[in-house]
Simulated scan of single mutants.
Amino acid sequence: MTNLGNIVVLLLICVVLYFAGKNKDKKVALIAILGLAITSLLVSIIKPTVGELRPFLVLPHVNLLVQENGMYSFPSGHTSLVFTIATILGLSYKFKNVKLIYITLAIATIVGFSRIYLGVHYPVDVFGGIIVGVLSGLLSLKLGEGIFKKLGVYNGIY
């Protein structure tokens, strides 16, 4: 589950959505890619600024279950990225008249929890990732709709 927060996996989802989808899907995919870019930029600025070391580097009883190269922990990049995509996709689509947001946020929450379970993040890192991801997703939806409106291809995303 943790790999669903990997940027390569999320970009692949966006590419598939773009090439396999219709007009709305293409717009959502482009907005999602914008969201991933915004989130990646924010996380790359916040991590070294906060400088919180990962749990396995500080706590002797943490068993690292995956290989992790980065030394900084806050916010969780995987969690931030998956919550960005969960917000964008969840607010853009409905499934049988129910917004998909409940399903996408549930999946994103499992990814966030997996980061703690694997020993690479503290709970506060995941919570910070949730905030960064949701806000980036909402910002991307707003910016994307504005861009499409200016280009004259706007027909509403959600």
Rank of each mutant, 00 (worst) to 15 (best):
V62M: 00
V62N: 01
N63F: 01
N63M: 00
N63Q: 02
L64A: 07
L64I: 07
L64G: 04
V66L: 09
E68C: 10
N69T: 11
G70A: 15
G70S: 15
G70H: 11
M71W: 01
Y72W: 02
Y72P: 12
Y72I: 02
S73G: 02
S73W: 00
F74P: 01
F74A: 10
F74Q: 02
P75L: 10
P75K: 04
P75H: 03
P75Q: 06
S76Q: 07
G77Q: 01
G77E: 01
H78I: 11
H78C: 13
T79G: 11
T79S: 15
T79C: 13
T79V: 08
T79P: 10
T79R: 14
T79F: 11
S80M: 06
S80V: 06
L81K: 13
V82S: 09
V82M: 08
F83N: 03
F83E: 04
T84F: 05
T84M: 05
T84K: 05
I85G: 07
I85T: 14
I85V: 15
A86G: 15
T87M: 08
I88A: 11
I88D: 07
L89C: 14
L89R: 06
G90H: 04
G90M: 06
L91P: 06
S92L: 11
S92C: 11
Y93C: 13
Y93P: 12
K94S: 14
K94C: 06
K94T: 14
F95R: 14
K96Y: 09
N97V: 07
V98D: 07
V98M: 14
V98F: 11
V98G: 03
K99P: 04
L100R: 03
I101C: 10
I101M: 12
Y102L: 13
T104Q: 13
L105K: 06
A106V: 06
A106K: 05
I107A: 11
I107F: 10
A108Q: 09
T109A: 15
T109S: 15
V111C: 13
V111Q: 09
G112E: 07
G112M: 11
G112L: 08
G112I: 07
F113M: 13
F113P: 00
S114I: 05
R115Y: 09
I116P: 02
I116Q: 00
I116A: 01
I116S: 01
L118D: 06
L118Q: 04
L118I: 03
L118T: 03
G119R: 00
G119Y: 01
V120A: 00
V120M: 01
Y122S: 04
Y122V: 06
P123M: 06
V124A: 14
V124R: 15
D125P: 09
D125S: 04
D125I: 07
V126N: 04
